[in-house]
Deep mutational scan, measured.
Amino acid sequence: MDALKSAGRALIRSPSLAKQSWGGGGRHRKLPENWTDTRETLLEGMLFSLKYLGMTLVEQPKGEELSAAAIKRIVATAKASGKKLQKVTLKVSPRGIILTDNLTNQLIENVSIYRISYCTADKMHDKVFAYIAQSQHNQSLECHAFLCTKRKMAQAVTLTVAQAFKVAFEFWQVSKEEKEKRDKASQEGGDVLGARQDCTPPLKSLVATGNLLDLEETAKAPLSTVSANTTNMDEVPRPQALSGSSVVWELDDGLDEAFSRLAQSRTNPQVLDTGLTAQDMHYAQCLSPVDWDKPDSSGTEQDDLFSF
């Protein structure tokens, strides 16, 4: 819950932080000083300027060897085509990944977070970031790969997607708890209302004896509580940590079903599988986004697919 609360507080303090972009060759504004600060901008989305290598189908939802083989196929196909790589912007948030063309600003792909089953910074092609997700059109699994400016960037994108998945799962947990509370309150309110109706004398007997209905007592009954809980029953509950912020979080049926399955089948359902080692994760978390744009010590960066 700490990640969720800190993310909400950060967004309320400075929503404009989320509009910064990394990996864009110096076009961005001043960047936060450390990885923790940038992680807090996830709610509205972190932007990464990358190059799209392509996509291939895979048979399993996750796995280092599986993704490595898929990336190898994608890279080989991209090299064989001889075409310049498409420059894209990857927007990562707890909602998922939005992929747009840098030149036309046209939407290429919009992947809900619950469809993503794996992401990684490839070991062999260490400047490549990739994720595996279920197609929104059918049940097939797709591996999408992107060329980053350097290994640090690939690791940073991988960690960002993993963190977005974690925050999304926490949102789901909060929403589920809130819905259970509202359902319980609604049920209790309905029981109270039913009890009051059972003990209320029939209207005919009131008229016969000349008694008047006590409207004041009726007004004191917990009807307002019942209506408050039943009027918006169809509205999706939102985490309290975000009250007053500009973010509107809505959970669709697909996300609810997917996270429910994860909660039942996995020990740590909030953790998205990645190909990063503990050492890689520690190294990337210690980086400032400013470091992502620094040239690798191995030599001059080449803006070309064939540089790796």
Rank of each mutant, 00 (worst) to 15 (best):
A241K: 13
K184G: 14
D234C: 02
S67M: 14
F169S: 01
D234T: 09
K51L: 15
V192Q: 08
Y118D: 02
A278G: 02
N229A: 15
Y118E: 03
P289L: 01
F165D: 07
L42Q: 12
T38K: 15
F171S: 03
N138E: 13
P15W: 04
E40R: 09
D304C: 05
D183L: 04
K30N: 15
V88Y: 14
L251A: 00
Q279D: 07
T104R: 08
K184A: 03
Q155L: 14
A7F: 13
L276T: 02
R238W: 13
D303R: 05
I71L: 13
P32S: 02
N34E: 11
E59K: 05
F146N: 03
L50P: 15
A221F: 07
F129M: 06
Y52V: 05
T231E: 03
Q134T: 07
A258G: 10
Q86F: 08
L85V: 12
E109K: 04
A68F: 12
G299F: 00
R13I: 13
K166I: 06
V75H: 12
W35Y: 07
E44M: 09
Y131G: 13
E40F: 10
Q163W: 00
S307I: 03
Q187N: 07
Q302I: 14
K84A: 08
Y52C: 13
Q279A: 04
T41F: 12
L99W: 12
L31V: 12
V247F: 01
L287V: 02
T267A: 03
E64T: 15
D101S: 15
K152R: 02
Q302T: 15
P94S: 10
V271Y: 12
W292E: 12
N211F: 03
Q163E: 06
E109R: 12
V271Q: 02
L90W: 02
V111L: 14
T149I: 13
M55R: 13
M281E: 02
T209Y: 05
A156M: 14
T267R: 04
K51T: 08
S245R: 12
N138G: 12
S81T: 07
D304I: 00
L206D: 06
G299M: 02
G254S: 09
L47N: 03
W172F: 01
W172E: 01
T231S: 07
A7T: 09
F129L: 10
N105W: 14
V111S: 15
G82F: 08
G189R: 05
L47C: 08
T300E: 03
D122H: 12
K91M: 13
V128Y: 12
A69P: 02
T41W: 10
N138I: 12
S93E: 15
M46C: 09
L107R: 14
C286R: 08
L141Y: 01
H28N: 08
S67T: 12
P269F: 01
D291Q: 03
T209R: 09
E33T: 09
Q86Y: 10
E250H: 03
L213G: 11
Q139K: 12
L107F: 13
E180C: 10
A263R: 12
V92A: 15
H28D: 10
P61K: 04
W22V: 14
T38L: 05
